[in-house]
Design a protein around this nucleic acid. Structure first.
Lengths: 338, 338
DNA sequence: CTGTTAGCGCTTTCAA
DNA sequence: TTGAAAGCGCTAACAG
């Protein structure tokens, strides 16, 4: 932290205020002066002390982002989208990854608010129960909160300054079913995720409804046994031992689908000839896992959330948003029994 | 930003200073007073304004982290390790992901310094040429910089306040070669990454040297054609068309190895019976890619870097560090020709 | 068009 | 063991 406004002011023979205004391109400063100031600032390598700035003014140009981890493609993907949007808008981001330590989330949120964050973005963990503590502190302080992908059960649209962006799981289900239906599949199994997880429950429900409407048979109960590849692998092994088998498996995410694919190949069956697999998310494993996966890709959730906040910041509405999706055919689905 | 020290002071009938000291557990405040202050702070939900604090004191408890992206398992992994270490130490982290925009890096670094960052952590992009600009600004400000994984060519240990943590690529090469040698492989191919990339060049060099020492034959030129799965896939297809083939392929990272594995399977060959594959990094694709990969796992680089900084912060040396590795056998290697 | 005054919330320094 | 004074670098509000 070297050069201050005062240093510039002194060497230019101006007041601190004039320099500040010039750098902010205020309308009441002469063009010639502005130019002189800018040149000097450039020459001496000035950059503003944001701590001092946000102590004084309301806008800090800083947001806080809470992530559960960065290992899963889901969270690192969304986090990356947010960081990119933030850079384009000239906004800085503090990132916190609270561990299991009790009160860790609240502590991180307080640190973010203490540094002047204008909003808190939260990528919740799957279990969203104990979220409320952190949320309490934030909303009490009057900061807007944006949730991504899921949100705790106890917040409703009535709650002050809380909003969220979600993926359209209903559309995702329809796309998958349409695709399979057109190929000729009439019997499918659902292999999903965490039942307490609203978006996954919704996905499953939409698949079941959509299948019923089309007159498609759902083989077996929905299997909600986790979202990791090993979960998919384990459950698929069980399915393969049964007499009655589906012709395709709709998965709750790409990781489960990767595990499913591995189990199918390990059993000596072929994809898509013997069994079709369809993922969700278009992540790394959909492209480079056991087989290239037909999957559902969503449009940019992080960007949508960031834009939602920008709207709110300018006084706009807090209405939650839903982003759409498209089917990406990589050949892990085909006509059944071919 | 609600309750201030002043508010606490007023309701407790103390001075602002007494409250500040009590919360900092200063030695010159009575135990009873401390307790009263803490209780009140808790009750009213006080948390400090860090902007004001770092305006006054030297230690801000904030660091800046620059990442090239979060999509690759490499960068998101290290970033996650850093965030976790930071949480444990009660340090906040600003994260920037500069895009291609010119001057983006420098701008982000300035924003970090402007908010009082005590250090800048950099996960460089593969091409480290134009790094110097950002670096210039930081070192000029006297902040320590820690590089992860690679560092620009123009910084040496002589340079003030710059250090780095690296992976021991030599050891990684030795582990891979030992493993293959013991299994009976006598002819291997190297399929690596970016030649301008110091650590990958070093890996390749160590593999070549190690092979020579053991009397192992290197089949073909080292192939440095990229680090993505599609690069590995494409190059492996070429190798498979040749007459003279190796019995195992040593890859520059897990992603390349995943591509290699896919090409081998696509050609109808078996892993490890027809061809062994060995990765590097123990990432997601090593566990859940086309086949489970035998690979080299490194110990926690992010943590090592964070600890290096903590040492420096307490006045310790800036000596760069190197972290070790171990072989993880997941069965993509076996006896040749079996 | 440019400058002055005041003060954001905290901590450093020094006095009581 | 506690408190008063001063000021970190910046900007809102108002004068000139």
């Amino acid at each position: 932290m070297r050069v201050r406004l005062r240093d510039l002011a002194e060497s230019l023979g101006l007041s601190v205020m004039a320099v500040s205004k010039a750098l902010h391109d205020a309308p009441d400063i002469g063009a010639a002066t502005k130019e002189r100031v800018r040149a000097e600032a450039e020459k001496r390598g000035y950059w503003p002390n944001q701590a001092a700035r946000s102590l004084r003014s309301k806008r800090s140009g800083l947001i806080g982002l809470l992530v559960p981890d960065l290992a899963s493609p889901e969270s690192s993907g969304i986090a990356g989208e947010i960081l990119k949007s933030a850079e384009n808008a000239g906004i800085s981001v503090m990132v916190g990854m609270p561990g299991e330590k009790k009160g860790g989330e609240a502590a991180q949120v307080k640190a973010m608010m203490g540094r002047g964050s204008e909003a808190i973005f939260i990528l919740p963990k799957i279990s969203t129960e104990h979220r409320s503590l952190a949320l309490e502190a934030v909303t009490q302080a009057g900061l807007p909160v944006i949730f991504f992908q899921r949100y705790p059960a106890d917040v409703g649209p009535g709650r002050a300054r809380v909003s969220w962006v979600m993926r359209d799981m209903g559309q995702a289900a329809q796309l998958a079913l349409d695709h399979l239906w057109k190929l000729g599949h009439r019997k499918v199994t659902y292999l999903g995720g965490h039942p307490a997880e609203r978006s996954h429950a919704e996905h499953w429900r939409a698949v079941r409804e959509g299948a019923r409407q089309r007159g498609m048979e759902m083989e077996g109960e929905p299997i909600m046994a986790g979202l990791r590849p090993e979960d998919g692998e384990r459950e698929m092994e069980k399915i393969l031992e049964k007499k009655s088998k589906p012709t395709a498996v709709i998965c709750g995410n790409d990781e489960v689908a990767a595990g499913v694919a591995r189990a199918i190949l390990a059993a000596g069956s072929k994809i898509p000839e013997d069994l079709g697999v369809i993922g969700l998310g278009d992540g790394e494993l959909a492209k480079h896992g056991p087989v290239p996966l037909t999957t559902i890709g969503f449009s940019n959730l992080g960007k949508a959330g960031f834009e939602l906040w920008m709207t709110i910041r300018e006084g706009g509405e807090m209405k939650p948003r839903v982003v759409g999706c498209e089917l990406i055919d990589r050949g892990s689905t085909g006509k059944p029994g071919e």
